[in-house]
């Protein structure tokens, strides 16, 4: 019951935040230098004065601001994100067809970074001061400091250009006409390099955090109690240290979801991965702002959803959650 209340509270909060982002979007269009209509039309509209006035009318730009806002919010909520005059298609359609590719990439990278990062953190913490700890620490330090696009490019250089092991471009072999399992394998083959590229930075984050958190936990009083009970070292680490140490990592994973989606813009650009990130890059190149703002709303929505899921997972792991934040 209390968990339901907690989840309901988080859902409401998420909706409020989303509404705030929609309003922010609206304000951004209005605050941008120049005519909102030209912002929405992008470069496409700049030349044609008749087309612009038609746009202004369509969006109610001649009406008072609060009415415009109401129209805008209503449109977004009903999934009408406007029209990309560059691509000559509705924004919502353009976005939706790109969602699966991005989910595949970010989802894989998320799991990879979390699992490997936590494992490395545990390894380092349980061998603190030894060479394996130092190695993990140094690796984490490096990937924490490396720009993600550069990791991607160097990966291509090594694994595609030099070794020829992995494809460097796209999501599947163009003109391959593969189906079923063969197609899935082909996609997987294309996924390896971008997913690892995207995962490395966050892997470093989780590894550092898990290590620090484990080291902090093993000095807690309840761990001393566990030792005094004569429990085996392995059980103490697994049940007492790790379970408590993982809580801040879960919180961090939720917070970092936004960064993962941000990183996917760069990675999709490097690997020509046909997802939302790649689309974002194209919109920037073509100054297709209406589409870019659509990307902004969609990615925000994804982050809010991930945060909600993390909160729910957290509420199952930590019994104290009902006491409030």
């Amino acid at each position: 019951m209390q968990r339901l209340q907690f989840i309901a509270q988080r859902v409401v909060k998420g909706i409020v935040v989303l509404l705030g982002i929609i309003i922010l979007n609206f304000l951004l269009i209005r605050m941008a230098p120049g005519d909102p209509a030209s912002v929405m039309a992008g470069e496409a509209g700049a030349a044609d004065e008749v087309f612009m006035s038609q746009l202004r009318k369509e969006f109610g730009l001649d009406r008072p601001l609060h009415e415009q806002l109401a129209v805008y919010v209503k449109n977004v909520v009903t999934l009408d994100l406007g029209y990309s005059y560059r691509q000559q298609r509705p924004v919502a359609d353009l976005l939706l067809e790109r969602v699966p590719a991005t989910l595949l990439l970010t989802g894989t990278a998320f799991l990879l970074s979390l699992v490997v990062g936590v494992l490395l953190g545990i390894l380092a913490a349980s061998r603190v001061g030894q060479w394996s700890d130092s190695l993990v620490t140094v690796i984490a330090l490096f990937f924490y400091a490396t720009p993600i696009f550069w990791v991607g490019l160097m990966g291509i250089l090594l694994f595609s250009v030099t070794l020829g092991w992995l494809p460097s471009f796209g999501m599947y072999t163009v003109g391959g006409k593969l189906t079923g399992a063969a197609f899935a394998l082909d996609v997987l083959h294309h996924l390896i390099l971008p997913a690892i590229t995207l995962a490395l930075f966050h892997m470093a984050v989780y590894a550092r955090m898990t290590r620090a958190s484990m080291l902090e936990m093993r000095d807690q009083d309840f761990v001393r109690t566990a030792h005094a009970k004569g429990l085996r070292e392995g059980r103490i680490v697994r049940i007492h240290v790790l379970r408590n140490a993982i809580l801040p990592v879960i919180t961090m994973a939720g917070v970092k979801a936004g960064y993962l989606i941000g990183g996917s813009i760069v990675v999709e650009t490097v690997f020509a991965w046909p997802g939302i990130g790649r689309l974002a890059f194209e919109t920037v190149m073509q100054r297709d702002y209406n589409l870019l703002l659509g990307v902004f709303i969609l990615t925000s929505f994804m982050v809010i959803a991930v945060n909600l899921i993390t909160d729910i997972i957290y509420s199952f792991v930590d019994p104290r959650i009902e006491l409030g934040q």
């Binding site: 109690t225 379970r243 930590d318 019994p319």
Partner: peptide, 16 residues
């Protein structure tokens, strides 16, 4: 040999 400690608030695992 068993042992009990000073701080009962922190001596038990909060998640168990």
């Amino acid at each position: 040999i068993s042992m009990i400690f000073q701080e009962p608030m922190t001596a038990l695992n909060p998640l168990m």
